[in-house]
């Protein structure tokens, strides 16, 4: 049986900087233990992602797919359906974790930087 994959959508400038620097997916918001949300849906239209995830911002970035077995434990909540908010319907699946997910990469220790692949 195929396993789930997860995507994260975001727009905060510090989060994309962190992702490029560390190949690590984690919110840049320190409040409430770095809770980081993901969804199972791949949206190609950011406006649709905004509607079904009920975001007050249009996401600028999508990271994923990350296979379920490469995701951290969902220690805040597992899969649930997004509630309607802000006159948007919600309806996508979301999960939440406080742990980072690490993306594949090749780090060059002498150069102290990631190798382009």
């Amino acid at each position: 049986m195929a396993q789930d994959v997860y995507y994260r959508y975001f727009a905060h400038p510090s989060e994309i900087a962190q992702l490029r620097r560390e190949r690590m997916v984690l919110t840049s918001n320190p409040n409430r233990g770095f809770k980081t949300w993901y969804t199972t849906t791949r949206f190609d239209d950011p406006a649709l992602a905004q509607q079904l995830l009920t975001l007050s911002y249009v996401p600028e970035y999508r990271v994923g797919p990350i296979r379920a077995d490469e995701m951290p434990d969902f220690d805040v909540h597992g899969q649930r359906i997004v509630q309607p908010l802000g006159n948007m319907p919600g309806g996508a699946i979301e999960v939440c974790t406080t742990q980072p997910a690490y993306l594949f990469g090749c780090y060059n220790f002498p150069n102290n930087d990631w190798e382009p692949l």
Binding site: Y9, F10, H12, E15, T27, S28, N29, N31, R32, K35, W37, L53, L55, S56, Y57, E94, C96
Partner: peptide, 9 residues
């Protein structure tokens, strides 16, 4: 819950 998807809510 607070700060869902980093929103100040």
């Amino acid at each position: 819950e607070r700060w869902r998807w980093d929103q100040p809510e």
